[in-house]
Design a protein around this nucleic acid. Structure first.
Lengths: 156, 156
DNA sequence: AAATATAATTATAACCATTTTAACTTGATA
DNA sequence: TATCAAGTTAAAATGGTTATAATTATATTT
């Protein structure tokens, strides 16, 4: 709890230093991103806070997520047609995503700087960042799959 | 040309083997994906073929891209709100994307299997695939930036 | 080659995440 | 207190993608 409060306070300070006004809505959105320990969509954030701010607009959520993105506090994970997810992150990390249920789990892996270096050399680009995602089946969905196979055998 | 024709023919055979009917529209979309040597959006494909198929619907383009994706012939690159891009790919490769003009360039980099292995170990997932993108400034946009700085100096 | 069944295509409307707009409110500053 | 910029709100607009239902093409069987 106090760790989270600390995280939020640090983030707030960082925003103030960047000249960003701290409104109650901003504070609440940021706090939720830290506390929820997941990768919520804009709508999830909106719904989670509507009891506290019955008049808050979705636009406010989107506006402020954009503000947070600019400062680097928050990263947006885009998925085509589906909703983006937003990730409050201090440390560089990657995501592994279940292709069956959509669950997202963080993992750490150092040393992809060389990929950036090689890409820069080969293409002539100057490199700023990269994105890596791994796709597969989470343990729960593996079990479900196994159970279904069992059922099939029985009813055969 | 003959290399491309060969690629298309192989892809067609592969589709037939998977029990996919080859319609004129399918053939044209596939051919365009091979020949265009880029990563077109669904709308770009649609526009590129409308002189050949004046009655073709966008839905047909989307439907068939989905069919191609299922067989593994085509990969979808998603970018949140913006249009997906579609990539006809035989070899495993990655993309470097200009954050200024949006240009996408392919590059090769072997040996990210270990990332998959580590992610699987740490998370308990079974891994199928991964996605890596590098972001930066393409040479052209680097030049433009440099030119603008020069201009600033002159008019100062 | 004709008949049949299945799959694909078309045109249109619907969907839904996100952004835009314009009016209004708040907060900081002079 | 007046003023100005920034933030918020509510509603409408945007735009990529998908669903629907009717029509047409394709493959298979007779």
């Amino acid at each position: 709890m106090s760790v989270d409060t600390d995280k939020v306070d640090k983030a707030i300070d960082m925003l103030k230093d960047s000249g960003v006004r701290i409104t109650p809505q901003r504070h609440a959105i940021l706090e939720y991103l830290v506390v929820c320990e997941s990768h919520p969509t804009a709508d999830e954030i909106y719904k989670a806070l509507e009891h506290k701010f019955p008049n808050m607009s979705v636009a406010t959520v989107y506006n402020n997520l954009r503000v947070f993105k600019k400062t680097g506090l928050v990263k947006e994970l885009t998925y085509g047609d589906a909703s983006s997810r937003f990730d409050f992150s201090n440390k560089q990390h990657y995501h592994i995503i279940c292709t069956h249920c959509g669950k997202i789990v963080d993992f750490f892996y150092p040393g992809l700087d060389e990929v950036e270096d090689l890409a820069a050399q080969v293409t002539g680009f100057t490199v700023n960042s990269h994105r890596l995602e791994v796709y597969g089946l989470c343990p729960e969905c593996q079990n479900k799959k196994a159970e279904n196979k069992e059922k099939m055998k029985v009813t055969e």
